[in-house]
């Protein structure tokens, strides 16, 4: 396909997406004292960006690069390495279905197929109402309860196709009962 050329040297304004708010920048700065270098705050910064914007927009990556004093390409390097970071808008809730061995043996494929049908979307797509995005991932670390899927951060275990309607209609299907670690949310000031 090398007869086609994509121009990477310019980028359309609308492709840049939203940037970081002043509050988000401030929050990122509070992470600096924890690490020996600013660039080490890359992952928390990206999480903050993704929490605020919903994904890691190009503009947010540029903002982070400026804050962390690294070239923007270095931020893009990290974003594209982790599948947890999104580079385009996603639905309110992201359903991640396990496609690894144990789950697949226990019927993961059927669960995925049923989900696709119920939501009317394919992998890496978002429902028109913006409610759900669907992806698959390697092992979700609950192999003993396959098939598994996650809705945002909540893991649903031993999912059967007939459970799906109930799970999807539950407004709290992404709420985790366990509180999130305060290491992430409340950085200590030094």
């Amino acid at each position: 396909m090398s007869w086609e050329t994509i121009d990477r040297t310019t980028v359309a304004e609308e492709k840049l997406g939203p940037g970081l708010s002043a509050a988000a920048r401030e929050k990122i700065r509070t992470f600096f004292p924890r690490y020996p270098s600013k660039r080490a705050a890359m992952l928390p910064a990206l999480h903050i960006a993704q929490d605020e914007i919903g994904y890691c927009s190009l503009r947010a990556m540029r903002d982070i690069a400026e804050l962390l004093e690294v070239p923007p390409s270095a931020v893009m390097d990290v974003v594209t390495f982790y599948t947890q970071f999104w580079t385009h808008p996603r639905g309110k809730k992201v359903i991640t279905v396990c496609r690894s061995l144990s789950c697949e043996l226990m019927g993961g494929k059927e669960v995925l197929a049923a989900l696709k049908e119920k939501l009317g979307i394919d992998e890496h797509q978002t429902t028109p109402d913006g409610k759900y995005s669907l992806v698959t991932e390697e092992c979700l670390a609950s192999c003993d309860h396959g098939p598994c899927m996650q809705i945002n951060e909540k893991t649903h275990k031993c999912v059967r196709v007939e459970d799906l309607d109930r799970i999807l209609s539950d407004p709290d299907n992404d709420k985790i009962s366990m509180p999130r670690s305060d290491i992430f949310d409340a950085p200590q000031k030094t």
Partner: peptide, 8 residues
């Protein structure tokens, strides 16, 4: 290998 879009 890539550049950041718009940062040639």
């Amino acid at each position: 290998i890539d550049i950041f879009p718009g940062e040639p």
